[in-house]
Amino acid sequence: MYVEGSRLAVGIVVPHDMALDRELWRWAPDDVSLLFTRTPYSPLEVTTELVIDLSDPEMIGRTATDLVSAEPLAYAYGCTSGSFINGVAGEHAIVDAITTTTGRPSITTSGALVTAIRELGLRRVAVANPYRLDISIAFERYLDEVGIAVAGSRNLDLRHDIWHVGYPVTRELLLSADSPDADGIVVCCTNLATYDLIAEVEATIGKPVISSNQATVWALLRLVGAPAIGPGQRLLRTPIGAAR
């Protein structure tokens, strides 16, 4: 477990097209190393077909073993769509596959988002994402399955190059997704940069904003008792402890 000043590592499996490793590092303390490995390359665009490819528990568990020799204390599957597309059962299967193959505790991005939503006591959330509509709707179904209501949704309908979306576009996406009925905003996709927007938009709308990358690192570090770093971000004000 984490003791400040001791060096430890956690493992993160990400999709082959992940381009925001550096953003995840921004939430990590200096004495925690994030060790990344990637799923096999696929030439598909960001469609339901690709997302289903990225949801294969056996493939994800096998990929996680690439990091075993570096002895991470815990693992995450850092893909939102790939961990929600098959619902709660699919998300649990991914966690089980990683934990079985590595012998370490694990979480997924979608599971981390749910944990974060519950940690902040949100009952109805607005959803913002870069996906096509069918993938966006699949995330809403996943939230419904875990008992979280959706009070509005906005998507960018992108099939590729999501990591190129700039802060101005993402800021407008978040603000347009908000509604009076929403207790907060959930921003999906680990390839959508959000770090510098979260506290700013929270201050503007007076509600929590939870992003995929933020929740992933927060929940992963909680497994080892370490704090995530994000000045002004509401989620990171919660006490450190074992993830629920």
Rank of each mutant, 00 (worst) to 15 (best):
L175V: 13
H164E: 14
L133H: 14
R141A: 13
V165K: 05
L221D: 04
T194Y: 01
A215Q: 01
T204A: 15
W218H: 05
W218C: 04
N213R: 02
Y131I: 09
L197H: 04
A215E: 00
I107T: 15
G147P: 01
R123D: 13
R159I: 14
D181W: 07
A182D: 04
A203T: 13
L221S: 07
N129I: 07
V186G: 01
V114I: 14
P130V: 08
I148L: 05
A97G: 12
A138H: 06
A126R: 01
K207V: 10
Q214W: 02
V187R: 00
I107N: 06
G225A: 12
T170K: 01
V146C: 05
S176I: 09
E145K: 05
V95W: 03
V125Q: 04
H164Y: 08
R222N: 15
A93M: 07
S136P: 10
S212K: 01
V217N: 02
E202F: 06
L122S: 03
A138P: 04
A215V: 00
S212L: 06
D161Q: 13
T216H: 00
L175W: 09
R104D: 09
E140K: 12
W218P: 01
G166L: 13
D96S: 14
T170Y: 01
I210Y: 00
V150F: 03
F139D: 04
L197G: 04
P105V: 05
Y195W: 09
V201Y: 01
I198Q: 00
I135C: 10
L223A: 10
P180I: 07
E200M: 13
D144W: 04
I137C: 09
H164C: 09
F139P: 04
L143R: 01
R141T: 13
V224R: 10
S212G: 12
T102Q: 10
S211F: 00
G206W: 11
A219D: 14
R132Q: 14
I117M: 08
V217G: 03
T99L: 12
A149G: 12
G166N: 12
I107C: 14
V217I: 15
T190I: 02
I162F: 11
R132N: 11
N155K: 08
A193W: 00
N129C: 14
E145N: 06
T115E: 14
T216A: 05
D96W: 08
E172M: 13
A97S: 15
A203Y: 09
V125G: 04
A215G: 05
T101S: 15
Y167R: 12
A138L: 11
I107L: 12
I198C: 00
S211Q: 02
L122R: 01
T101R: 15
R124C: 11
R154T: 11
P130A: 12
L122D: 01
L156V: 12
A182S: 15
L158E: 13
V201L: 06
T170A: 07
I205V: 15
T108V: 06
E172R: 15
A219H: 09
A215M: 03
A215K: 00
L223R: 14
L133G: 09
C189Q: 02
I162A: 11
L122A: 06
A199M: 07
G206D: 11
R159M: 11
A203L: 12
Y195P: 00
T170E: 04
G184V: 04
A151K: 06
L192Q: 02
L223C: 11
T216D: 01
